[in-house]
Design a binder for these strands. Structure first.
Lengths: 341, 341
DNA sequence: TTCGATAATGTTACCGCTATCATGACCCAA
DNA sequence: TTGGGTCATGATAGCGGTAACATTATCGAA
């Protein structure tokens, strides 16, 4: 069965066509486009005119094949849907597009096997670099990456053993710091609502940070105060409901991710639980809405834009041949204190 | 100055290498990968083993060049940052990745000139299709697209003259319907907070829908009730503040986009303005948080996921050669009535 | 036995561009 | 005048695959 390629076969204008029209060799056209200064002004003008007339669009596929370079960079996220990432994506895309690079984006659904497939697909596209918002990978993923020789940034967490480049903040330290902050405020029964820890290393690290802070201060962790919830307003409400029904209620709750804290705050409003008098609330990600709620909610400010920006910048400088050997860039975090604690 | 290509020159394994190791011709390897059923099982096993051993990753760039097909689809958004789009992106990515296609995403910053550049870049990559979340384009953009012959979906608004395929809902009708709904509820001084209309056709269409509804019912539009605001919580608060300070206060406000209604609701809380008793509030996009707030906020439910899904599906079927000539797919919208009106 | 259909594999050319080296034009100092 | 430098351009040979056609092996029916 022959596929009816009814579309896409308007035979495209090639460099050769432009060359003929301009009365030069294809090579000169190529130069006029990628190294204009190597071509005399007169010739260049002729060529540009010919391009204009023919509507020529250079075929980067052919160019990439011939030059063994591509102008794409791959980005793999655990979930595109999570709007927290959109600032990171945008920041990366901005930096890259300024240098003529395009961003290939894909979604691993938090699965390392899926990530493996995507890495392979990206390498197949001969991306010039990759950003992985994840620090756990399959053996094969790591083998493929180290084999490829392209710059790769891991950005989900600051890892001590990056494959190549690490640009992030420490989930463990951030979580620990926020817990410390609550402890310093005098809270002692601190609930901890984790993201689903399955397939999510960052969720585990945050929990460990929480536990570590408690331990340092000598507060015994209480399993009953630690629950997991999906990343939604709904789940946040549910978690809050559960925790306030305990016989020994928490005096504060640290929501370790996403939008859960907002859901919980909404639920408090509904249940007439006063924040922070009855219960304090702290959040991990500093979503815009947290500062607008009444009361406004204390949270960790994560350098999301900087991560995208730095990751892309480092990749670019690597591509351009700058050494910048193995890099680990800690972009830190901030505790933004608000009314809720 | 020679660029130090210290990275990326681990000379990659080629199909030829695999072929030699498996004692077959490159062509057989190619077939084993893309049409396995054309190769005998024995040969296929040999080839797969060779691939495994060498860690071969097919070069899609070369494949695309030779076959004149690519496995990428381009998506251009006015702003990646706007989290409203993330569901659309994800839905499209899901559909595409199931068929082995990758998504190139870029951001036009609401500028048609930027869109033009991106379209050119995408065509340069020989994307198999494109999705543009916008219905206004430069002459050149349209020329390039119609020239390319690839399937292109416009998804920002249901337009009567799509370049090729239109998958969306009608901003005009949606806005009009919501305004009608408010009018039917008995509200007569209805404020309208628009997104910045500059470079944003959709914002204008929504405003027109609002005006049209008013006109139909014979309510005279009042300039004082119509203001523009950026798409942020902050801007929503500001808009509300302005409107309630008017001598003749509105009895309802329709926030025609993004997250502004939530900001306004927060502000009401702070100012002790009762919703809907003192003022009713309606929102255009049905963000998750609107249904969780107290009071919950009436809004228009836009088929964001369906748009991504349909757009990608139609493009795929076009690529595969199905006719589906010029398509206009109206995915509609829903008014979700809640406590705020 | 022989021929043609079918399945499995190979050969060749070429996709559209760029790296590399070769060439020609021009200029100036010796 | 001549030789060698510089600048602008051209010719050639791939990049790593795949389309299209060619070839060989295999097998059953005539």
């Amino acid at each position: 069965m022959k596929k009816a390629t009814r579309f896409g076969d308007a035979r495209a204008v090639r460099m050769n066509d432009v060359a003929q029209r301009a009365n030069v060799s294809p090579m000169t056209v190529s130069r006029a486009l990628s190294n204009p200064e190597m071509v005399s002004e007169k010739t260049r003008d002729k060529i540009l005119a010919a391009i204009e007339q023919t509507g020529y669009v250079p075929n980067r596929i052919a160019g990439s094949l011939a030059s063994n370079r591509s102008n794409t960079v791959g980005l793999i996220l655990p979930s595109i849907r999570n709007s927290l990432f959109s600032e990171t994506i945008q920041a990366a895309a901005d930096v890259l597009s300024k240098k003529g690079y395009l961003l290939l984006i894909a979604d691993s659904g938090h699965l390392v096997e899926e990530e493996e497939k995507l890495v392979e697909a990206f390498l197949g596209q001969r991306v010039s670099g990759m950003i992985l918002h994840n620090t756990e990978h399959t053996e094969r993923t790591m083998a493929m990456i180290s084999n490829s020789g392209i710059p790769v940034v891991e950005s989900g967490d600051l890892t001590s053993h990056p494959m190549d480049i690490s640009v992030s903040y420490s989930n463990f330290e951030a979580s620990k710091a926020m817990t410390r902050y609550l402890l310093d405020k005098g809270y002692r029964r601190i609930g901890f609502v984790s993201l689903l820890s399955k397939n999510n290393n960052r969720a585990c690290l945050r929990r460990d940070g929480y536990l570590s802070a408690l331990e340092e201060v000598g507060v015994k962790a209480d399993e009953a105060l630690m629950i997991e919830a999906g990343s939604s307003l709904e789940a946040g409400r549910g978690a809050l409901t559960k925790l306030v029904q305990l016989a020994e209620k928490p005096d504060a709750i640290f929501f370790a991710g996403d939008i859960m804290a907002a859901g919980a705050a909404f639920e408090c409003q509904k249940l007439n639980i006063r924040i922070p008098d009855d219960i304090a609330i702290a959040s991990f990600d500093d979503l815009d809405i947290l500062q607008h709620m009444s009361p406004s909610i204390t949270s960790l400010q994560i350098p999301r834009i900087e991560i995208g920006h730095e990751a892309a910048s480092i990749i670019l400088s690597r591509i351009e041949g700058q050494e910048t050997s193995a890099v680990t860039k800690d972009l830190g975090f901030n505790i933004v204190e608000r009314q809720s604690t």
